[in-house]
Computed example of a mutant assay.
Amino acid sequence: MSEDFYCEEVLSGRTAVQKVMETEHVLAYHHTRPFYPVHIVTIPKKHIPSLVTLEDQDNNLLLEMMDMVKKVASQVVSEHGACRVITNLGKYQDSKHLHFHIVYGEPLNKK
C-alpha cells in the first residue's frame, strides 16, 4: 500500500469512491476494500499524518471531521443498531493520513 492512499488515490480522483457525505474540508465514503459488512472511512481533505500529529491550527478541522463521524455513525446505528468508530496509530496505521473507520458487523473473512 502507498504511504498515503487517501491523498494519492482518493483525493486525487485516481480511485473512484462511493461518497456518503462531504463538506469542503472532510469526506466520508465507503471503504474501497471493506473489512466489515458496513465500512465507511472519514478523512480530512488536508493531509494530516495521524491523530497524534494534529496541531492547534487543525482544531476547527478536527471538530468538523468529528461532526461528520458523528453523523455517519448515527446513520449506521439508526440502520443497524450499533457501530464502532476506529482510528489506528503507528504500525497499525497502513496509510499515513488521519482517518476514522465507522464500521458495523463482524470482520469479513479476508484471504
Results as ranks from 00 to 15, higher is better:
1 M>F: 14
1 M>A: 11
1 M>E: 10
1 M>P: 05
3 E>P: 02
3 E>Y: 13
4 D>P: 03
4 D>V: 06
5 F>N: 04
6 Y>V: 01
6 Y>P: 02
6 Y>Q: 03
6 Y>G: 00
6 Y>H: 08
6 Y>W: 13
7 C>N: 05
7 C>I: 02
7 C>F: 00
7 C>A: 05
8 E>H: 04
8 E>A: 08
8 E>W: 00
8 E>V: 03
9 E>Y: 06
9 E>V: 03
9 E>I: 00
9 E>D: 15
10 V>I: 09
11 L>Q: 01
12 S>C: 02
12 S>Q: 02
12 S>Y: 02
13 G>Q: 04
13 G>T: 06
14 R>V: 03
14 R>C: 00
14 R>F: 00
15 T>W: 03
16 A>K: 13
16 A>D: 08
17 V>T: 14
17 V>H: 10
17 V>E: 13
17 V>M: 02
17 V>Q: 10
17 V>P: 11
18 Q>E: 11
18 Q>R: 15
18 Q>I: 11
18 Q>L: 09
18 Q>V: 09
18 Q>D: 15
19 K>R: 15
20 V>E: 13
20 V>L: 12
21 M>S: 13
21 M>G: 08
21 M>T: 05
22 E>M: 09
24 E>G: 15
24 E>W: 08
24 E>I: 10
25 H>Y: 07
25 H>R: 15
26 V>M: 02
27 L>K: 04
28 A>S: 09
28 A>R: 00
28 A>K: 01
28 A>I: 01
28 A>V: 04
28 A>H: 07
29 Y>K: 13
29 Y>E: 13
29 Y>M: 10
29 Y>W: 14
29 Y>Q: 12
32 T>S: 10
32 T>F: 00
32 T>M: 01
33 R>L: 00
34 P>T: 08
34 P>S: 06
35 F>C: 06
35 F>Y: 11
36 Y>R: 05
37 P>S: 10
38 V>P: 13
38 V>A: 08
38 V>H: 06
40 I>T: 13
41 V>R: 02
41 V>G: 07
42 T>R: 01
42 T>V: 12
42 T>W: 00
42 T>Y: 01
42 T>D: 04
43 I>C: 01
43 I>G: 00
44 P>R: 06
44 P>Q: 10
45 K>W: 03
46 K>R: 13
46 K>N: 06
47 H>W: 05
47 H>L: 03
47 H>V: 04
49 P>R: 06
50 S>P: 14
50 S>K: 12
50 S>W: 07
51 L>N: 10
52 V>N: 15
52 V>F: 12
52 V>I: 04
52 V>Q: 14
54 L>R: 09
54 L>I: 14
54 L>E: 11
55 E>L: 09
55 E>T: 11
55 E>K: 14
55 E>M: 12
55 E>D: 06
56 D>I: 14
56 D>M: 08
56 D>Q: 09
56 D>H: 13
57 Q>Y: 11
58 D>W: 07
58 D>S: 15
59 N>M: 07
60 N>M: 11
60 N>K: 12
60 N>I: 11
61 L>D: 03
61 L>R: 02
61 L>E: 01
62 L>Y: 10
62 L>S: 02
62 L>C: 06
62 L>F: 08
62 L>R: 04
63 L>K: 04
63 L>Y: 10
65 M>L: 15
65 M>C: 07
65 M>H: 04
66 M>G: 01
67 D>A: 10
67 D>E: 14
67 D>R: 15
67 D>L: 15
67 D>G: 12
69 V>G: 03
69 V>I: 15
70 K>P: 09
70 K>D: 04
